[in-house]
Amino acid sequence: MDQPPSEGERRERSEAGAPVGRRIVLSMLGLGAVGVVAGDQIQATLEEVLRPVTENDPTGLTSLAPTAGRFRIYTVVNPMPERSETDYRLTVDGMVDTPLTLSLADLRDRPPTELVRDFQCVTGWRVPEVHWTGVLLRDLLDEAGVASGATHLRLWSFDGAYTESLTLEQARRDDVMAAYEMLDGPVSREHGGPVRLYVAPMYGYKSLKWLERIEVVDDLTPGYWEMRGYDIDAWVGDSNGRDDDPI
């Protein structure tokens, strides 16, 4: 501009002012769009960088950050169910030769299987390299003796609401267990203790918490979230609209 603005012009412009409000809104929209498209990568990088910090943070506050690779506790009922280790019983029944009722001690007496595998939620968070100990479902099914004609399992939680389903073939895999230890200790109440299911190759909602009953059946009844639209076969990386690398 060659000429200095007149007094009137200057006043008018300063009253109008710069459209900072619009800039803030547009910046937020732009950042948001970048975050949606690239957030997958950004999050993975941040998690890698921040893991030493979150693992050594005595306050636990950094674990609240959305990047911390931490478990998020989901429960569909209130209050969260509670059962002591001595009161706990696991039933295996339905189409079996010998129904089983096992205490926690009974489970611990059986040959343990250990796994170190990721826990991946269908909503996008993943906890890397979780240490699991438990009894393979296959071993329990063999002990009870599956009757011919059976095709599926119906799994029941003692929260009174949550259920899950597996095909017998899926349940017989060597990475599907009734787990009584995770994260280097007994399965805590919030993680579904004393005993929970762990279905390593599938998203977390298949790994039913507070496992109470394994019912052998000859038909499919979709589980809790499956009745609400989630895939019944929840293979990590190959279901629920996702194709991320399988663990």
């Binding site: 809104v25 929209l29 949606v36 498209v37 690239a38 957030g39 996008g124 609209g241 996702r242 991320d244």
Partner: peptide
């Protein structure tokens, strides 16, 4: 608009490209 858009992708994720669900959760 940011929360509305990312929340909608989280809730109705089917039509969107696959990593967007994680990205939307992140935002």
């Amino acid at each position: 608009p940011v929360m509305l858009a990312t929340g909608s992708i989280m809730r109705w994720f089917e039509p969107f490209p696959l990593p967007w669900r994680t990205g939307a959760t992140f935002v």
